[in-house]
Amino acid sequence: CATRSIDRTRYPLPTEVMELKRWELDGRIALKNGKEGFTAGLNWVETPESYLFELTGPLGETRARLNATPGLATLELPNEPVLSSPNTELLLADHFGWAVPVESLKFWVRGLPDANSEQVQFDPEGRLQTFESRGWQVRYLEWQQANGLTLPKRLEARNEQLQLKLSLHDWHF
């Protein structure tokens, strides 16, 4: 189920960011459950028809590549056959072993709550600070300017089982 975007009127959100149709980001991501986990390079390419979510190792080697279009996602893992499913999050959880909330992350990485977000709080400068969404607690630690837009630089998302930390060092749109 693709997560619908947030109801615009409910919160003072930056419209230009919400209206971004095509964007690409490069960053670092740490995924942890208990003591186990790993860090990876994150490359995300979003277009109106699809998005690409890719995790890479220290020398750029692909560790997981998720391609999602409405209704079908494919997952490529090194030395394994391509897998596909209508549900992107299930595909990642079942085959990559990590229930990464990619459908919601699509909004979180741009500093936007998703349609299930509650207890949404803003910081003194009017930027999103924290919210809760389907058991995830999301927190924004640092912001940056990219081509005139204010976008997140560092954020964290945590639920009972998993902890994600993201640092986004390159935005293109």
Binding site: A30, T39, R154, K165
Partner: peptide, 25 residues
């Protein structure tokens, strides 16, 4: 550049330190 990362192989273990996401693996 454009991010901070330190990989150290001691010959026995591989340490990866990433201050931007405050993680040591």
């Amino acid at each position: 550049k454009p991010y901070q990362q330190l990989l150290i192989s001691t010959g026995k273990e591989l340490w990866i330190y990433e201050p931007d996401i405050d993680s040591v693996t």
